[in-house]
C-alpha cells in the first residue's frame, strides 16, 4: 500500500471570486434583511452577488429600487416591461432595476 502523491496534480487553488464574479467592476454585494417570507427563494441574511452589467430578462432575480427602497424579487415580462408579478402599472409608483442577482450565498 502506498499513498498517492497529489503534488503534481495540484496546479492552483480554487478561487470563489473567480467562480462567482464575472465582471468585478460592475459587481456589488448586498445583504438581505427583514422577515422570512414563505415560498421565497431569498432568505434574510443571504448575501447577494449583484452584477449591474447584465441585462435583466423574463424571470430574472433582480435588485430593484421600489418606492425608494432596494428590494430583491423576480421580474416578469409584461407588455415589454420587466415588472414584479402582480404589479399594477401606474398605481404602485416606479420601479427601477438596479442590477441582476447572479449568485446567492447562504450560511447554513
Amino acid at each position: 500500500m502506498s499513498f498517492p502523491v497529489p503534488g503534481d496534480a495540484i496546479e492552483q487553488s480554487l478561487d470563489l471570486n473567480h467562480h462567482l464574479i464575472h465582471n468585478p467592476a460592475a459587481t456589488f454585494f448586498m445583504r438581505v434583511e427583514g422577515d422570512m417570507v414563505v415560498g421565497q427563494d431569498v432568505h434574510p441574511g443571504d448575501l447577494l452577488v449583484v452584477d449591474r452589467s447584465q441585462a435583466a430578462q423574463d424571470g430574472s432575480l433582480v435588485v430593484a429600487a421600489i418606492a425608494g427602497t432596494l428590494q430583491v424579487l423576480h421580474v416578469e415580462q409584461h407588455h415589454g416591461r420587466l415588472l414584479p408579478p402582480g404589479w399594477q402599472l401606474g398605481t404602485e409608483g416606479d420601479i427601477n432595476i438596479w442590477g441582476v442577482v447572479t449568485n446567492l450565498i447562504r450560511k447554513v
Partner: peptide, 19 residues
C-alpha cells in the same frame, strides 16, 4: 453592505388576476 428587502408576493390572487 447595503441591505435589501425581499419583495412580498403575498398579495391576494384576486388583485393579481384583475391586474
Amino acid at each position: 453592505l447595503p441591505t435589501v428587502k425581499a419583495w412580498q408576493t403575498t398579495r391576494d390572487q384576486s388583485t393579481r388576476l384583475s391586474c
